[in-house]
């Protein structure tokens, strides 16, 4: 194809998206669209998979059967969400194995929030309430993104996600209304998860390299700063309601903006964690790669069994 032909196709492509048409796997698409989607969707899938680890840590120690079945179901949902997203990404021509390879070698990133440790049961509450809360804010606009398989996967994800946040908030509420020690545990979890949750919504608009193009392709509908403000405005009253304090001395209601003003985010910490120096980066990758390697014989045995059954069937036909 000549350069002019490609330009022309690109123009038609952008017009289709502007008209709110969906792009499907076999449609022509600019290489950059394909690459950007593979990057974002696979990282989204990786985040779901790695996101199981901090919570999986507490399944066996959940304080009651009610809490245990809920946490188990939530972690299972995350596995499901990872699988929806991996298979949606595969429609762009990358194999599952390549994606795993990128995750395991550190070439692909996952959400930095999962590089923080879960040291108490209250962390299960804080993660559901704050981390899933921030994730929902990020994900809802994606239900309407331009790439069909991604949009469809996100609709399923968003439908399932709201129970995650509610179960987390319920945990926090119970602890906050419990003994002084329990309340302290809830407050401590909020103190540790608040700032990383704000960082989860991405670097400030001035620093975000992908925003403009992503807006055009509807991979993003609102800027990181707008999403962060939305998250803060919706979460502060929820903290007030259960008597917990947001760990930000500069947080205050701005009557004029009808929004909360908030303190500076420690972006150095964010970039350190992104670069692999968070408290749990090594541990998470070790667990993930370990599970993949330990499971290899199971995958091979299943394949060998399937082949053998197939062979036997073919022989019977003869």
């Amino acid at each position: 194809m000549s350069e002019e032909q490609i330009k022309n196709l690109e123009k038609q492509f952008e017009e289709r998206i502007a008209r709110d048409e969906k792009i499907e796997p076999k449609d022509w698409m600019p290489e950059k669209y394909r690459k950007t989607h593979i990057r974002q969707m696979s990282q989204h899938a990786h985040s779901e998979i790695v996101g199981m680890l901090p919570e999986g840590n507490w399944i066996t120690r959940a304080p009651s059967l009610r809490r245990k079945v809920a946490l188990l179901a939530k972690v299972q949902d995350e596995a499901g969400h990872g699988l929806y997203l991996y298979s949606a990404t595969e429609t762009l021509g990358i194999s599952r194995d390549e994606m795993y390879e990128q995750l395991h070698t550190g070439k692909a990133k996952y959400s930095s929030i999962f590089n923080y440790p879960t040291v108490t049961w209250a962390d299960m509450g804080a993660i559901g309430w704050l981390v899933d809360g921030a994730a929902i804010i990020n994900q809802v606009p994606l239900c309407n993104t331009s790439y069909g398989p991604y949009a469809r996967a996100m609709i399923r994800v968003c439908k399932e996600e709201s129970f995650h946040q509610r179960q987390g908030y319920e945990i926090m509420m119970k602890l906050a209304n419990g003994t002084p020690e329990q309340k302290e545990m809830a407050q401590d979890a909020l103190n540790r998860w608040w700032w990383p949750s704000l960082m989860m919504l991405g670097p400030t608009d001035a620093e975000s390299i992908h925003t403009e193009q992503s807006m055009k392709w509807k991979l993003k509908r609102k800027s990181n700063d707008d999403l962060r403000q939305q998250f803060i405005d919706q979460t502060v009253p929820q903290a007030d309601l259960i008597g917990l304090t947001i760990p930000d001395p500069d947080l205050k209601w701005n009557e004029e903006r009808q929004s909360y003003d908030f303190g500076d985010i420690d972006w150095d910490e964010f970039w350190q964690v992104v670069k692999g120096h968070g408290p749990m980066n090594k541990e998470r990758m070790k667990a993930r790669v370990g599970a993949w390697e330990v499971g290899e014989w199971v995958r091979d045995a299943a394949m060998a069994y399937a082949d053998k059954k197939q062979e036997r069937k073919e022989k019977q036909v003869v």
């Binding site: 699988l83 929806y84 298979s87 949606a88 595969e90 599952r96 469809r152 996967a153 995958r299 299943a302 394949m303 069994y305 399937a306 059954k309 197939q310």
Partner: peptide, 11 residues
């Protein structure tokens, strides 16, 4: 509904 990987139809 979507797709997934499995060794055979039963799985």
């Amino acid at each position: 509904f979507g797709s997934l990987h499995a060794a055979d139809a039963e799985m």
